[in-house]
Design a protein around this nucleic acid. Structure first.
Lengths: 153, 153
DNA sequence: ATATTTATTGCGAATAATTATCAATAAGAG
DNA sequence: CTCTTATTGATAATTATTCGCAATAAATAT
């Protein structure tokens, strides 16, 4: 189990923060704030939902947890703060962690030309999980360009 | 300029849809629904905001436009539906298109093992734009793990 | 053309995730 | 033990997006 050393800062390791972090580190999923709230409430009966939001924000801003950058209604958090990538299934929404990624190579002259420095420490990679990929094979739908209609250029 | 051929479908190319698409293709930015609404209203004075949302959704679902998958409050749309990538500056939020990307190589045994098939036709790559990268060099802050405090494991 | 069917629109209300407010409380410093 | 400041809990506010529905417009049948 991990501990936080807040010496030399104005921040405090409150019971709320400690327990939110502990619980988030216990699960291997990528829970929403609501889900974390429900779990934490078992240990702090009267914790406020706002406190959970505030502290997830605090923990993320200070590098203790990750907040996924996917476009979903509800934000998702990750108790593992070590840089790693997430595979996001475009079909079922499943999130798969990959930790062994030795590098992401983006072959683009434009990228080099504009001087952009990729930081893929927390990168969400869209695609299709094994199960959905298998299902998609039977369909004629083009997953990559889902146009039903023709575009005349 | 592009045209839509809706023959053989139940969908209609209404004035609203045509103008939303036309205007979205005119700009090289990645506007929000609100921004598109403001532009389109110049041509259709009484268009409803809900119509803009509905039709952006329609156009995206049918492959005419892209909807960025970044975690921002407001959704952002792209009139260019051809597969391409976006560089997202973690510092200033700038969005840069790259079209010449010949491929993204993800070196991971875990990825291969789980059978996930990446589909990076619309991938958002985080990092730092030239300007922000230059600024960041002067700082001691570790951009990759923004923790202000120490974590004792 | 005109009538009929069905998709789409405009309006306003509803939803829902997140944030802000603020008095009360708890934690650390002196 | 007192003082200062950070944090909390409760609740209200915000805001992007969606929903419901009658009115309208577009395609199809007559």
């Amino acid at each position: 189990m991990s501990e936080i050393n807040l010496k030399g800062t104005n921040y405090r390791l409150t019971k709320q923060r400690r327990i939110i972090l502990e619980e988030l580190k216990k699960v291997c999923t990528h829970p929403t704030a609501e889900s974390i709230y429900k779990i934490v409430r078992k240990r702090i009966k009267n914790i406020s939902f706002a406190t959970v939001y505030r502290n997830l924000d605090f923990l993320e801003k200070n590098g203790y947890v990750l907040k996924l950058k996917i476009k979903e209604k509800k934000a998702r958090y990750d108790g593992e703060s070590k840089p790693h990538r997430h595979l996001i299934c475009k079909c079922c929404g499943k999130i798969i962690d990959i930790f062994d990624c030795r590098g992401i190579i983006i072959r683009s002259k434009e990228l080099k030309a504009c001087g952009f420095v990729p930081d893929c420490g927390c990168l969400e990679i869209p695609g299709f999980c094994k199960q959905c990929e298998a299902k998609a094979k039977h369909l004629t739908i083009n997953r990559f360009a889902p146009a039903k209609h023709k575009i005349i250029l």
